[in-house]
């Protein structure tokens, strides 16, 4: 019922509607603007003949990669803002007292929220991704379906990692603003480090994004992918277990008098 309650809450606050919508819009935008970009430049830019050749329509791989980049920025921002309070807000309002005073395990309480987070984020992402692929096929070029599926799943695991971090921060911190700040900050730092010093960051979860890019461009993941994937999955589980443990040790009842 805890899982069901999270769904009802997301439905009543319309999160279940607007988060997928954001992702679908993001997914459509990239291929469509790429396609019309040359046209737009040609019509308004007044470029000389022949210059159009310098602005080629990007490849499908580039478009999908750019779309994932959008997901990684605007998409994360939306998810984090929507769910930074998933635990913290209940702690601050005191609503979780009436739940945790019932014979409910802390593990169930947190994993229900975790499962819900993953459902919403991965579900929205999948819809956005499918939209992006559909319009890329339609407007730009066909790509290898299998690569797209694998690449999509690999990127999805990066999303799952970020969502797990958000749950962890929300459970352990009291300020939702700080949850958002720390969550997005960590994501940005990991992504930056991974693209600047890939050699040092072979295990970083953010490296998964570059593996998925390789897949689109060359049909193959980069080296060290297996270890990277395994490490990320271990991290996700580890963070989840650690969060449950620390959350259990925290005092639930807040100061009232």
């Amino acid at each position: 019922m805890l899982f069901k309650k999270e769904w009802t809450e997301s439905v009543r606050s319309y999160k279940i509607l607007w988060i997928p919508v954001v992702f679908i819009l993001l997914g459509i935008t990239q291929p469509v603007t790429s396609y019309y970009f040359a046209d737009i430049i040609g019509q308004f830019g007044g470029l000389p003949e022949g210059a159009v050749m310098d602005i080629p329509i990007p490849t499908g791989a580039e478009v999908i990669t750019a779309t994932l980049g959008q997901f990684g920025q605007i998409g994360f921002l939306v998810l984090v803002l929507a769910y930074m309070g998933i635990v913290a807000k209940e702690k601050n309002h005191g609503t979780q007292i009436l739940v945790l005073v019932k014979p409910v395990s802390y593990t169930n309480y947190l994993t229900a929220k975790w499962a819900h987070l993953l459902c919403i984020s991965l579900g929205s992402y999948a819809m956005g991704y499918i939209a992006a692929v559909y319009y890329t096929f339609l407007l730009i070029e066909k790509m290898v379906i299998a690569d797209l599926i694998y690449g999509g799943i690999i990127y999805g695991i990066w999303i799952a990692f970020v969502m797990t971090v958000i749950l962890c921060l929300s459970a352990l911190l009291n300020s939702t603003a700080f949850v958002a700040f720390a969550g997005l900050g960590l994501t940005v730092v990991l992504s930056l480090l991974s693209s600047l010093t890939p050699d040092l960051m072979t295990l970083s979860p953010a490296m998964l994004t570059s593996h998925s890019q390789n897949l689109y461009q060359t049909g193959q993941v980069g080296s060290g992918f297996g270890l990277n994937l395994a490490f990320t999955l271990v991290l996700i589980i580890g963070i989840l277990i650690g969060t449950i443990y620390l959350f259990h040790k925290k005092e639930i009842a807040q100061h009232t008098t």
């Binding site: 809450e9 309002h93 005191g94 609503t95 007292i97 009436l98 005073v101 019932k102 014979p103 009232t256």
Partner: peptide, 15 residues
């Protein structure tokens, strides 16, 4: 023991 206890906090907060 929580299954045998019903609790009303001083300031109950609901969803």
């Amino acid at each position: 023991r929580r299954q045998y206890i019903g609790y009303l906090p001083q300031y109950p907060k609901f969803y």
